[in-house]
Amino acid sequence: MATYVSDLKGLSAPLSADLHYDMADPYAIRLSIGVPMERPVDWVFARELLAEGLHRPTGSGDVVVMPWHHPHPDSLRVVLRNRSGTALVEMAASEVATFLRRTFVLVPDGAESHHVDLDRAISELTGTSG
């Protein structure tokens, strides 16, 4: 998926951006942004945030998603913030909608808890095994 990333100071560059979904983490999606042949920067945030952002501005803090109709009517903007700065990612809303439809076929909305391995999650949080 092609996208434009800006640092909100007017500097922008075309970069590749890939959305990923893993049924082992059914509530989340991963947005990987980068230049070919280099290690991408990954952002992980709620699948529901991305879905809602197709229709109305949503999110606060590190990730904000909003439909955007200027200059392209089929745009979606994702604002990413961390201590290093802020980036603005613009993607084709139709491509994001297609991606999301595929994720909801894999794990329907409301069925995410059936795909979570609670024992593994607790082990990862506590640093224990078994």
Rank of each mutant, 00 (worst) to 15 (best):
Y4K: 12
Y4I: 09
Y4P: 04
S6E: 14
D7Q: 07
D7A: 05
D7W: 10
D7P: 04
L8Y: 12
G10I: 07
G10S: 09
L11T: 12
L11Q: 15
L11D: 14
S12Q: 15
S12F: 15
A13G: 06
A13V: 12
P14Y: 12
P14M: 14
L15M: 13
S16N: 12
A17R: 01
D18E: 15
L19P: 04
H20L: 10
H20P: 00
Y21V: 02
M23F: 14
A24E: 15
A24Y: 15
P26N: 13
I29Q: 00
I29F: 06
L31C: 02
I33Y: 08
G34S: 10
V35R: 13
V35G: 09
E38M: 09
E38K: 10
E38I: 00
R39E: 14
R39V: 07
V41Q: 10
D42L: 02
D42W: 07
V44G: 05
A46T: 09
R47F: 04
A51Y: 04
E52V: 02
H55E: 08
H55R: 08
R56Y: 04
P57M: 01
T58C: 06
G59E: 05
S60G: 08
G61L: 07
G61Y: 11
V63W: 08
V64E: 11
V65Y: 01
V65E: 01
P67D: 05
P67K: 09
W68T: 01
W68D: 11
W68V: 01
H69A: 10
H69S: 08
H70Y: 12
H70A: 11
H70L: 10
P71A: 02
P71S: 03
H72E: 13
P73H: 11
P73Y: 10
P73V: 06
D74Y: 04
S75T: 08
S75V: 02
L76K: 03
L76Q: 02
L76W: 00
R77P: 00
R77A: 04
V79C: 04
V79M: 06
L80Y: 05
L80I: 05
R81P: 00
R81I: 01
N82K: 02
N82L: 01
R83Q: 05
R83V: 00
G85T: 02
G85Y: 01
G85K: 02
T86L: 09
L88C: 05
V89A: 04
V89G: 00
V89K: 01
V89Q: 06
E90W: 03
E90V: 03
E90D: 06
A92R: 06
A93G: 00
S94N: 09
A97N: 10
T98A: 12
T98W: 13
T98Y: 12
T98C: 05
L100S: 07
R102Q: 12
T103G: 00
T103K: 01
V105W: 09
L106T: 10
V107H: 03
V107F: 10
V107W: 06
P108G: 05
D109L: 07
D109Y: 08
G110T: 03
E112T: 04
E112D: 12
S113H: 15
S113C: 11
H114S: 11
H114I: 04
H115L: 12
H115A: 11
D119R: 11
R120A: 13
A121V: 11
I122W: 13
S123Y: 15
S123Q: 15
S123E: 15
E124R: 14
T126R: 10
T126S: 11
G127Q: 13
S129N: 13
S129M: 14
S129T: 12
S129P: 00
G130S: 15
G130N: 15
